[in-house]
Design a binder for these strands. Structure first.
Lengths: 206, 206, 206, 206
DNA sequence: TATGAATGAGAGTTCATTCAT
DNA sequence: AATGAATGAACTCTCATTCAT
């Protein structure tokens, strides 16, 4: 490997790292102020640069969210696929998916918040059609688990699985907007209680 | 009643009605496109007018959301207060509040969606401080019901009530973004299943 | 004279009177806030009506200033013409013109203020070409008096009459912006002192 | 001096210079068309830019006049203070102040015109309270000189000094609207004749 | 005569984006 | 890599004006 080659590699790596840094910064700003309400200048300022400088790294404001969201979704689906592909029973799959979701939130909180708040509007743009696709896949995945559970007699049959699905989707993702990882309850404890609540309900059992 | 009197009344009433109409239109547009991303022209267009014409009725774009949100919150709290003031037990109060929430969603869906999506950002503006206050009241109301239920032995003691609270808050309000009232399940059935799910869990009881 | 005729007359008279009232109101508002900065609504409000109602009486905002200014100029020139046509000597004419100017200010203060502040900008509009004409006539009138005074040995020959003219023009008209007629000095006294100052200077005579 | 240091200085200086250029352009446009009647786009056009570009340099249209006026007043007061602080007699102070005023007009004509035309309206805005203060200071300065002159027996005692003050104020500042510096009379000659006129009057001395 | 609702042009301002340096 | 100046489209809002009632 020639020195020249190594240089190219190291600068390419440095460049990728800088992008990642900037994206992380941007994600936080977008998450806290809202994508539409955030100006490019604000993002740049948070990264200690001037507005125009961001355009050396990114094509547009849009391409920033794009990268943020697609990176997050890619990683999330890799984790989900591992779970669903490991041949667990319905209840175990259910629990594992919930745990995995909280883990994703833990690792990509800003991206999750953006996804939660903006994907509906962004999805109208063809560029973000993958958001709609992801949502569909998400729905199918959960419905499949829930239906299997009902068939297996693990989950109640008197509840609409579509309703349960929405219920789970909403609470799991919205957790991103309040879960900080520095509260009194550790992540595992939250996941455990969450699972207990959904599975067994909040009533005392007689 | 003199004719003059009647005239004054009818024009004042007509004006109030027009405002209400326009606010309803604005609420729908804000809800579907997002407040920040919606232009005043779009609102006006949806009301079959030109941009400037809205300013005959309202001071600003901001005052529109203000009216939309405060009207909705006023009505919602009146309903909640009736429930909490009627001396029901913890579980009955719990159920009644859920039902009331779904009713509110049914009547003010666009306002609820706006509240859900924008209140975090709007609340930074002193004009919308009532949003933060309302959120605080909401939290206290639910925690009081939940804690009472735990004390009375109706609700499980091994779950964090703060967690349950968030759980309920998120799912109830997010329901506004998917509940249309024209789906296969009627409102009461949704409320019933929702309550069953939260109270008893989704597992089959052995 | 038939009753019908009298009615027509009285309504025409009433109408003219209303116009005059409205113009007086408008003049005051234009004078105190500036023509460009004054909105039609503000004028209407000062006359206890709504914005649109003024258009029953006047074609446009512009036509209001037009009427205000031309009425004032017509009256002013009638008075000046009387003075210049009465065969007085240069000094007497000078004094009479000054007195007449203060009288005009006294009677048309708002119009004078408007003239002072806005005529430069209005004059660019062909409709107000008479403002430029009036200014020219004004200049000629004063220069003629001053030159005659110099020729007659009444006024100093070592001063540029063009400079004196500007000097007089500025102070006389600007007096409109501070002269209220309710100060400690009565109008005649002001005119007297003003004349003394301009004619004899402010130095003590040795 | 390091190159870095010099760069920082030169860019800061270049920036200040650009601001000054733009302000000079803006002042001319405001002076000739009136502040309220001038659009930001017109100012920009006069500076060969587009409307929005001005906002890179200035916060608002208002901040432009603010800078124009306060810069002018600061310089003017520095000059006046030098005169009043140099222990001259009443008459010499009087003459020096007049000369200084004409010099100020010569150097800041557009600013003076703006001050003359707009300060009354601008002063209602708290941001421009310094205009009112300056006016008060101006009045006190002149009255003090005039009163001293009367006491010393240099100026006539039979004229109201308040009237003389207004007289001087009006003519001096209004000179800005006609004095171009390119007329037949040079600045000093104008000041000389002006002083002669005010001090000795326009009558021939018998 | 006057109202009240609406118009539509244009104002001040913001902001994503570009580009020479 | 980053700066800083500028662009230009779009936005919120204002206001003279119109017109049915």
């Amino acid at each position: 490997m020639s020195p020249r080659r190594r240089d190219a590699e190291s600068t390419a790596a440095a460049r990728a790292e800088r992008r990642a840094e900037l994206l992380a910064t941007a994600a936080e700003v977008f998450a806290s102020r809202g994508y539409a309400a955030t100006t490019v200048r604000e993002v740049a300022e948070a990264a200690d640069m001037l507005g125009g400088s961001l355009y050396y790294h990114f094509d547009s404001k849009e391409s920033m969210v794009d990268e943020i969201l697609s990176a997050f979704l890619t990683e999330m689906w890799a984790a989900y696929d591992k779970v669903t592909g490991s041949g667990l029973g319905a209840r175990e799959t259910f629990e594992a998916l919930i745990v995995e979701s909280f883990r994703t939130i833990h690792r990509h909180r800003p991206a999750v918040v953006i996804y939660q708040n903006e994907s509906k509007h962004l999805a109208t743009n063809p560029r973000f059609s993958y958001l709609t696709e992801s949502q569909g896949r998400f729905r199918e995945m959960w419905l499949s688990v829930l239906d299997r559970g009902v068939t297996d007699g693990v989950f109640r049959a008197d509840l609409d699985t579509g309703l349960i699905y929405r219920f789970i989707r909403d609470t799991v993702w919205l957790a991103a907007s309040w879960y900080r990882g520095d509260g009194p309850l550790p992540a595992e404890e939250i996941a455990r209680q969450y699972i207990a609540m959904v599975l067994e309900g909040i009533l005392t059992t007689p």
